[in-house]
Write a protein that binds this DNA or RNA. Structure first.
Lengths: 214, 214
DNA sequence: CCGTGATGTAAGCAGGTGCTTACACAAGGG
DNA sequence: CCCTTGTGTAAGCACCTGCTTACATCACGG
């Protein structure tokens, strides 16, 4: 995943498989490793030693290139994220983000920003601020889906549900939610949210309580 | 369980306000301090030194009386919690828990178990297991509010929203949700959940998107 | 009175954390 | 060639963590 995506051409034309001395390449190695570990363990539990080890470099380089663990976290969040926000129309954002959280299209390079957020809760206050910032961007878009005067609050509530579902499913692993079919979950949630955000394109939003097949 | 069963009369009949050498009393002091700090900072960020300091006793006593930080956490969770679960009828549980999370009736001695859960996410796996257990109890009750065949999944989804709202409001402090009127939030959420759990007593569940006054 | 045991305390230990420093190796230019 | 500059590395520092140990202090029984 992380390795081998830009190791083709080195400035000195190295043909060997060994990674020669290339600051940009090791920088990216560190960023990739940090992205993975932050998503897997959250900010606090991902140690700089683990990150450097997974990147295959010395941890001192991490501080030479990024200055501090927090700065590295900032670069990770700034790099990976926001594609989903930019490329997804508002009325599809909730479902796309929800399906991303439910594990669909969790390929390499997928946007795991929300996952990182969930696993980093309770860390330092500065981290919480960074996470609040990302949440704001999502909530702002979701708020446009309601014409009510408290549309921004409704956007917050929709985002809350999104994160709560991710919390229980990805972080806690609570059953039966953790093993539930993404389609079923999505249908139930989007249907219920139709009351809150009338701009959501409901599959079959009006379905009764006994509806959805498992 | 262990506390409060022999507190009233001291063996030496002490009438003074000063706490004499009383193991039960210091045990309770430690439990109270731990309860507060776990709720404020979560499990990991609440250190045994802070807990002992807030209790006004030496930290060695913490280990003498509880053995380990994890055991202390277990006693805290076993002591405070579950009153809400036992004393609240199923159809009111969601709203009561939601209002508790929204800050109403947050007096001393209130059940902050869910708050502790939220702030302790990402800690050690054993802690996550304990939190999953508490979540199971809530979700089981909520699941009874739907007659659908996937009622347990619907219960999980309702609990997810509850925790997600607490996450954004209490832990992250995201506006406008953090400062929103509990009544408004409750009305919006319970209304939307009416689609999911038909057993919820909706205030005015059928309200349209532009309804609720802010 | 002193001894015994429960209670409280200061100091320390082993391990982990983010971060720094002193040094080794590889290029490029004089 | 040597010297400078950029890159990689091992070792260590200062601090914090949960937890332990050796010691003081009080209540009570002889």
């Amino acid at each position: 995943m992380a390795i081998g995506e830009a190791m083709a051409e080195y400035p000195h034309g190295g043909t060997g498989g060994e990674h020669r001395r290339d600051a940009q390449a090791t920088r990216r190695l560190l960023l990739d490793a940090a992205s993975d570990l932050f998503a897997e363990r959250g900010y606090e539990r991902a140690t700089v030693r683990d990150i450097a080890s997974r990147a295959g470099v010395n941890q001192a380089l991490l501080f030479r290139y990024f200055g501090s663990k927090k700065a590295l976290f900032g670069e990770v969040m700034a790099r990976g994220g926001h594609e989903q926000l930019r490329t997804t129309p508002a009325e599809r954002l909730f479902e796309v983000a929800l399906r991303g959280m439910l594990g669909e299209g969790r390929g390499p390079g997928a946007d795991r920003s929300l996952e990182v957020c969930l696993r980093s809760i309770g860390g330092s206050d500065e981290i919480s601020e960074a996470l609040k910032g990302l949440g704001d961007e999502y909530a702002d878009v979701l708020a446009t889906l309601s014409k009510a005067d408290n549309g921004d609050l409704r956007g917050d509530l929709a985002l809350s549900w999104l994160l709560g579902i991710g919390l229980m499913r990805v972080v806690v692993g609570k059953e039966p939610l953790a093993g539930a079919d993404p389609d079923t979950v999505c249908r139930l949630v989007v249907g219920a949210l139709g009351t809150l955000l009338e701009g959501l394109p409901a599959d079959d939003a009006g379905e009764g309580p006994g509806g959805s097949g498992g």
